[in-house]
């Protein structure tokens, strides 16, 4: 089958402390190992068995998938953003291949946060 193509939706920016939802989708047959082909032979299982999401190189969420997960698996989860950083996602196939790896994670995105308020003394319009 064609190379799995992942799609990720996450907000480009977030307020510090905000909980954002991250939605991911990857194209994959998720062959369950239950299906039979035209000749009646069982099609061997080939699924993505694990999904990992990292933020600033730290694992924040993981999903272990079994054959009961639908084709083109969708996964959404939440993340409380306190600092800017890069998200990295990876999908682990039964055949050992990993999408989003090696050599850097797939489509890392920055989450720029508003800069902290200026110290009182440096705020414009204030004279001492």
């Amino acid at each position: 089958m064609a190379t799995p193509t992942p799609r990720i939706r996450l907000p480009a920016t977030a307020k510090a402390g905000e909980i954002v939802e991250i939605k991911t989708l990857i194209s994959h047959d998720m062959e369950s190992g239950q299906r039979k082909d035209a000749e009646g032979k069982i099609v061997p299982r080939k699924i993505i068995n694990r999904f990992e999401a990292r933020f600033a190189d730290k694992l924040v969420f993981a999903a272990d998938w079994n054959p009961s997960v639908s084709a083109n698996p969708y996964q959404s989860f939440f993340m409380k953003v306190t600092v800017s950083g890069e998200f990295a996602f990876s999908w682990f196939d039964d055949d050992g291949s990993v999408t989003g790896r090696p050599n850097m994670w797939l489509r890392p995105k920055r989450l720029p946060l508003p800069s902290p308020p200026l110290p009182r003394s440096r705020r414009p319009g204030r004279r001492t």
Binding site: F55, A63, W65, S68, V69, S70, S76, F78, K80
Partner: peptide, 13 residues
């Protein structure tokens, strides 16, 4: 770090 223990996916039944 997740902030909320929630997730969605799609399954086969």
């Amino acid at each position: 770090e997740c902030g909320r223990a929630a997730a969605s996916t799609r399954m086969r039944l």
